[in-house]
Structures are given as structure tokens and as C-alpha cells.
Computed example of a mutant assay.
Amino acid sequence: MSWQCEAQSAVSQAVASLERELTAPLLIRATPARTTALGEQVLPHARTALAAARSVEQLAAEAAESMTGTVRLAATPTVCQGLVPRLLRHWSEDQPRVTVRVFEGDSAEVAGWLENGTADAAVLIDPPPGPGIQLANDGYRALLPRDHPLAGEERVDIRDLEDDPFLISPNGCESRIRTIHSRAGLRFDPTHRVRDLATLISMVQAGIGITVLSEVSRSLIPADLALLPLEPQTARRLVLSGPQQRPWHPAVRTLAESAATYLAPWRQPARQM
């Protein structure tokens, strides 16, 4: 009963305040109370304003839900090593109520985990059009030892590296590296194939050969190696997305938008699909 009286008092105060603003009565205070002619005109607008306020409250409640929980994120090894650590640091500060668990796999595994529910979100590489937020346009670079004759150049044409032993990691990037060679009119004939990215980098350090990596790998490159823009130019799109066939975890879009804003200075303008 006490709550009802307080609520009625609040309504009376709100009506009285509005009457002072309008300098005209809205209610005839009798038993029962009824509206004046002006009150009848104001009433539909008051109902619209109340509905709008309730909609804002609902949006706030949904936003609060979207910023909590645990998100399982899948990504390829290059993305996990070169991009995900900085995102985890950013998310821990920007979205402290969201816990992100990382799963690393090749491109096929990542896509499969996303669709079968093992992962709630994934950083996909060149996905078909669909829901998602582009994080980066990740260009390909030549990785050379610092004592290589071309290491001091601003950019390198892959045709000028034709005589160098070429190293490759047989993962999702191989098809794009083949394309670079094809566009340059070169035969793709790697000297060594190694699975692990750290091994690949160590072999370039040891002078065994050169390779091509994407820009996202830059944070992993030691000081005695050079990562240089490559001709012909090509790039891959890194897109953070939830599953196409199931509803997204409420926090995924919040994380994706936060990541896109954080990475904006590092990438070309993003396009939401």
C-alpha cells in the first residue's frame, strides 16, 4: 500500500509539473478524476512517450545482457598468434564482463566448429557474404633476412625473389600465395614445407630461404627479419562472425563491434556485411 501511495504521488507531481509548463489544467480533480479537453489531446502523446521510454529500457536490458557471459572464439594459427592476443587484451579492458575462450584450428576446422556449435564466434578468412564485421584487410608481405640484398627496399616484387629458396606452410594461405606466383607468371615450387609458423620464421632467420606471410604476422617477426610489402599485391579479409544458421551468442556482436573500433587505425575501412 505504501508503494501504491508513493507511485500515485509521483504521478500527481508529474501531472502538476506538466500543467505548470502548459499553464493549463489537464485533469478535473474529482472522484473519479477525469481529463480536461486539453488533457484528452495530450493523452495520446503521453502514451507514446511512455511506450518510447519502455522501449529504451528494453534496449538497455538487452545491451546489459550482451556484455556478459563466455564466448568461445575459433581462429587459425596465424590469426591466433598475430591478432588474437591484442584483441584479448583490448576486450579484457573494454568488455570485462565477457570471458573469451580461444580455440585454434585450420580454416576448415574453424568453419566447422562455428557451424556445429563448438565455437560461438570465429575469425573467418574471406568468408562468403553473410553476417559479420570485417576486422582487417590483411595484405601479404615478403619475409626476408635483414642481410638479404632486397631487405632495404620499400617493397619487393616476387619476381625478384625467384632464385631464392621458397618456404611454405601448407595452410589456408597456400592458395593465395599460389595466386601471387601465378599473377607474376612464376611457377610455384616451394623448397621446404613446414607446418608450424614459428618453424617457418626460424628457417628464414637461419638463411634457409624466404617466405610470404600476411601483415597480421608482423608482431611475431623478430628484429633480424624484414616484412616488406609485396608485388603483385593481394590481401585477405578477416571477418569476426557468429554462425549463419543459429542465433548468435548475445555478446558476439558486442565483441565484434568493439574489435572493429579498436582495429580501425590498423586496417582499411571496414564494411559490415
Results as ranks from 00 to 15, higher is better:
residue 138 D to E: 11
residue 134 Q to T: 07
residue 173 C to E: 10
residue 183 R to I: 06
residue 240 L to R: 09
residue 40 E to M: 11
residue 111 A to G: 12
residue 10 A to F: 10
residue 118 T to R: 10
residue 234 T to N: 07
residue 71 V to Q: 08
residue 1 M to Y: 10
residue 213 L to H: 09
residue 240 L to P: 09
residue 264 A to M: 00
residue 217 S to D: 13
residue 267 R to N: 02
residue 154 E to L: 14
residue 44 P to R: 12
residue 91 W to I: 11
residue 98 V to G: 09
residue 96 P to T: 00
residue 17 S to Q: 13
residue 45 H to L: 15
residue 140 Y to A: 14
residue 204 V to P: 07
residue 27 L to Q: 02
residue 113 W to I: 08
residue 80 C to K: 04
residue 231 E to C: 02
residue 236 R to Y: 01
residue 236 R to M: 03
residue 233 Q to E: 15
residue 267 R to A: 01
residue 113 W to P: 06
residue 256 A to Y: 06
residue 234 T to F: 03
residue 183 R to N: 05
residue 272 Q to K: 01
residue 100 V to M: 04
residue 250 P to G: 08
residue 71 V to C: 09
residue 235 A to P: 04
residue 171 N to M: 10
residue 15 V to L: 15
residue 110 V to Y: 06
residue 237 R to T: 00
residue 199 T to D: 12
residue 244 Q to I: 03
residue 242 G to V: 01
residue 34 R to D: 07
residue 244 Q to K: 02
residue 94 D to C: 10
residue 38 L to Q: 08
residue 113 W to L: 12
residue 58 Q to W: 11
residue 231 E to K: 09
residue 111 A to L: 12
residue 64 A to Q: 15
residue 255 L to A: 05
residue 2 S to D: 13
residue 144 L to A: 13
residue 131 P to F: 00
residue 21 E to D: 11
residue 137 N to K: 03
residue 224 D to E: 15
residue 4 Q to I: 14
residue 48 T to V: 10
residue 119 A to M: 06
residue 1 M to K: 08
residue 136 A to R: 11
residue 180 I to T: 08
residue 204 V to R: 05
residue 82 G to S: 04
residue 197 L to R: 05
residue 69 G to A: 13
residue 178 R to T: 10
residue 88 L to F: 08
residue 14 A to Q: 15
residue 125 I to P: 10
residue 110 V to F: 06
residue 201 I to G: 07
residue 254 T to W: 07
residue 46 A to H: 04
residue 272 Q to P: 04
residue 245 Q to C: 03
residue 8 Q to G: 14
residue 104 E to L: 00
residue 87 L to D: 03
residue 25 P to L: 10
residue 115 E to K: 02
residue 139 G to D: 04
residue 163 D to S: 13
residue 221 I to C: 07
residue 88 L to Q: 13
residue 200 L to K: 06
residue 196 D to Y: 09
residue 218 R to A: 15
residue 26 L to Y: 05
residue 139 G to C: 03
residue 211 T to W: 14
residue 238 L to V: 06
residue 20 R to M: 06
residue 87 L to F: 04
